[in-house]
Simulated scan of single mutants.
Amino acid sequence: MSDEERKIIISRVSEYRQDESGQYQRVPVSPVNRWLTYAILIPVVAIMIVLGIFFFAAFLALLAVAILVVGTRFWWLRRKYENSMQHPGDANRQAETDQTVIIEDAQIIEETEARNEQKKH
Rank of each mutant, 00 (worst) to 15 (best):
S21C: 10
S21R: 14
Q23A: 08
R26T: 04
P28C: 09
P28K: 09
S30R: 13
V32S: 01
N33Y: 07
N33G: 06
R34F: 02
W35T: 06
W35F: 11
L36R: 11
L36A: 12
A39N: 04
A39Q: 11
I40W: 05
I42Y: 12
V44W: 00
V44H: 02
V44N: 02
V45S: 07
A46V: 13
A46C: 13
M48R: 01
M48P: 01
V50W: 06
V50Q: 09
F56D: 05
L63C: 12
A64W: 13
A64L: 14
A66T: 14
I67C: 12
L68T: 10
V70K: 12
G71D: 04
T72A: 11
F74G: 04
F74A: 07
W75K: 10
W75M: 02
W76Y: 15
L77H: 15
L77F: 15
R78N: 06
R79A: 14
K80M: 14
E82C: 02
E82T: 04
E82V: 02
S84D: 06
Q86L: 01
P88T: 03
D90V: 00
D90C: 03
N92S: 09
N92V: 06
Q94K: 11
A95G: 10
A95I: 06
E96M: 09
E96C: 02
E96Y: 06
D98C: 07
T100N: 13
D105M: 12
Q107Y: 10
Q107W: 06
I108P: 04
